[in-house]
Amino acid sequence: MSSKLIRGCVYLSAAVTFASLLFILLYIFINGLPHLNSDILSWKFTTDNQSLIPSLITTFIVLGLTLLIATPIGVFTGFYLVEYAKRGNKVVEVIRMATDTLAAIPSIVYGLFGMLFFVTFLGFQYSVAAGVLTSVIMVLPLIIRSTEEALMAVNDSLREASFGLGAGKLRTIFRVVLPVAMPGILSGVILASGRVIGETAALMYTLGTSSNLPSGLFSSGRTLALHMYVLSNEGIHVNESFATGVVLIIFVLIVNGLSTFLSNKLAKGTK
């Protein structure tokens, strides 16, 4: 009897999860697809056509620059924490606490910090630079944490084997540890990408909401998610907002698919 009940609950939960996901997808596609016309995909944003192309390109720019800065810093910090720092070191404890705390902070707090520090104090204005630096701070804990976990999951016997053959620390890390930890590190970077793509609150006050393509590092723009937020916030372009949602979802699906493909490919070489 009770096993039947549990089985029922399991099936029900799975069905609810799947159904709600399907419902959201369908809802956005049904409302958005009909409005995904040439106006919305035209090169320039004007009052007549709420084009999302500038936002799409800005999303690529912000995402690319953020990862370019955050990935090396995050990955090397992870390496320091696991491979170099002595166990029980006070600095390590402080860095860990800081990353854990940062990871739990709501993104609007990052947005306010970015506005006060980058936009106002450093005088960046609403700009790509301010937006990117704010996103970097936001995703660093994710990358550090996942790198740390991926490295700690690498069996110590492999490190011993490498040292036992007379290899130094650097060679051990790059030739033996890194390839094994790669899929885990990559999944952290993907998680970070997802966070940047979906971010609105932290970018609103740093990147700004200019509808045109930014002309340089110190000019404002908007990412797809921001674009969607602004359109629906204004209340008169809800249809275009849904169409943007469709593009955003397709974008996320492509990023996810690509990363799964990549990490499978990497993992194949090591397993």
Binding site: N155, S157, L158, E160, A161, S162, G164, L165, V176, P179, V180, G269, T270, K271
Partner: peptide, 13 residues
């Protein structure tokens, strides 16, 4: 002075 360990630990390559 080479070493062979208790558990076989070939590199995953």
């Amino acid at each position: 002075v080479g070493m062979v360990f208790q558990q076989p630990n070939p590199f995953p390559m």
